[in-house]
Design a protein around this nucleic acid. Sequence first.
DNA 1: TTTAGCAAACTTGTTGTTTGACTGCTAATA
DNA 2: TATTAGCAGTCAAACAACAAGTTTGCTAAA
Lengths: 341, 341
Amino acid sequence: MPEELDKRKKKILQAIIEEYIETAEPVSSGNLVNQLECSSATIRNDMAELEKIGFLEKTHTSSGRVPSQKGYRYYVDELIRDDKLSKREMEIIRDRLETKVNALEDLTKIATTTLSEITHYTAITIGPDVNNHIIVDIKFVLLGSRVLMAVILTDSGIIRESIIKFDEDITNEQVEELTNLFKSKLVGKPLQTMNAPLEEFIMDEMKMGINIIKKVIEEINKIILESKEVFLDGANKVVNMPEFKKNDVAKDFLNVLDAKDLVADVLNTGMADDIKIYIGEETEREELKNFSIVTFNHLLKGKDIGTIGIIGPTRMDYSKVISVMKYISKKLNDDFKNGKL
Amino acid sequence: MPEELDKRKKKILQAIIEEYIETAEPVSSGNLVNQLECSSATIRNDMAELEKIGFLEKTHTSSGRVPSQKGYRYYVDELIRDDKLSKREMEIIRDRLETKVNALEDLTKIATTTLSEITHYTAITIGPDVNNHIIVDIKFVLLGSRVLMAVILTDSGIIRESIIKFDEDITNEQVEELTNLFKSKLVGKPLQTMNAPLEEFIMDEMKMGINIIKKVIEEINKIILESKEVFLDGANKVVNMPEFKKNDVAKDFLNVLDAKDLVADVLNTGMADDIKIYIGEETEREELKNFSIVTFNHLLKGKDIGTIGIIGPTRMDYSKVISVMKYISKKLNDDFKNGKL
DNA sequence: TTTAGCAAACTTGTTGTTTGACTGCTAATA
DNA sequence: TATTAGCAGTCAAACAACAAGTTTGCTAAA
């Protein structure tokens, strides 16, 4: 149940959070007196109460107030406004999303880069779950006498490749037989079909050894499972944050990013249609307790083509981030519908 | 013509540079007295002379000496030793390069990541020039009614894709005709064949409009030209550098990296078989005057599969960087020959 | 040619002091 | 009862003055 706050307290909390998001400095009662119709003493009294119920904190006895995690949560749930995009910013986004892409996954990357650019936070994306994407074509190419490359095209436009090494030489005939076999068995079916029992891939008139087929299936299955490529943009944005000057905030942050997998893990949890927000300890990962993560899934034709997230300090401009995400998401889908993509 | 230095001066210069590379502190005459068989006064005299000919600099009247760009250049050309790799490090490299890769270009990325990991500098790579790679297969996939994807496989294992948008609907028949046309015209030829005059692609019995073909060729040509994807690893390594504490070195550095294109540009210039070193202003780019760049081309089967570079402070451990690069380069080619890749 | 010795230059770290920005509390006010 | 003015107490940040420690360049001796 949401805490009950009177109108003025709401205003004060909102003002403090927005001020703090902007300046990263503890905000004082005097600072707010212009925006509210009451004296600094009144504000001080309310601030004391907001602190008592855990929405605000102090850095030392005579400092201004700083929002707590609980405070941010209340703000995000109850007070936030999401009309923060300027005409100019929308223009930039539209412009970016219309740049030519080569690979489909580049589209997600461009969205990520744009997100980082507009919000000034670090944006991160993990590759899509391709299990239910339909196989359109499979091709094998011999790179070395014992090195084979498999390429799989899907209807969503996402391509998966795998380099497979053998202990024996592979002949061109075998490559051809492999191509025919996998084409006949898999084209038109979803990628997860690769998980079927080995027997299903064996044909009577086959000359090729069963070990080769087994190996190929194994390797391809690996890439389907672990194809969660992580792409990250704007990591350096931290150095422009005021927190950066104190302590080793920047260092900590960059080290967190180094552990891409950790962040990717949180993004994974967040699989959903809507935007999800994790504030500080809500990520339930010790290393991320000083950061917030906002994620959304990027769907095209109903298929997941990647999860995109923003990671930044808990003092994040949630309002801006949400606005941008919503806009990008909408734009991508509209464009696709209109064939503009 | 290389400056003439007597044996002791060489030793002093080398000692100063290596000490400075390690500590990032100006090095004093007293500091070196253990490594050399003479007194600090003698060293001071030599240091004064080395300063006079521009190999050393001072930060203030009574500070120790710091190498100048010219000093580093002399060091790199004349004094450097390249046996800096420990058994342990070689092991790590071997280990990394043997991890499974899916796409061939991932191999270059892994090399890049490894390079960054071992040297603790930022590593960067740009995609290969694919003009002379042989086309093995071409495939078109319809993603939307007006959105077509082209996929080109090459003999080197490098794949290029392009998303092409049309102003009119594309039918499945047209896709098939396109596939047949391009396959017959291009398979077995190098990618640069796509640059041939339009007429060469027109067949008598063709039903499809010429505009479609024109558009397809245009778009594919674009990706061949501009397929210089930039991949970067270890940008955060700067925060661990002592310089980072002073001024805004880290900020500057990260902002430089933001301009990936700039760095990519330098890498491009460096196309050559051998390792190239650019110290400070030698890059001839104002923004990079405080950095050094070391690059090498990664060839496989004689074909360029990407240029890899290291970017770091002029105070870079050139010796280490060169050792690692040489080792990685050798390892990659050996592995490929042995089919281990 | 090398070295010892020493004054001068300059950085770094410490300490004490001042200044200014807050808050919390009390008492007056609407 | 809710608000406000006024004021003492608290703390951080900025500053100055000072001491200590490096390192150089120079001079004169070895």
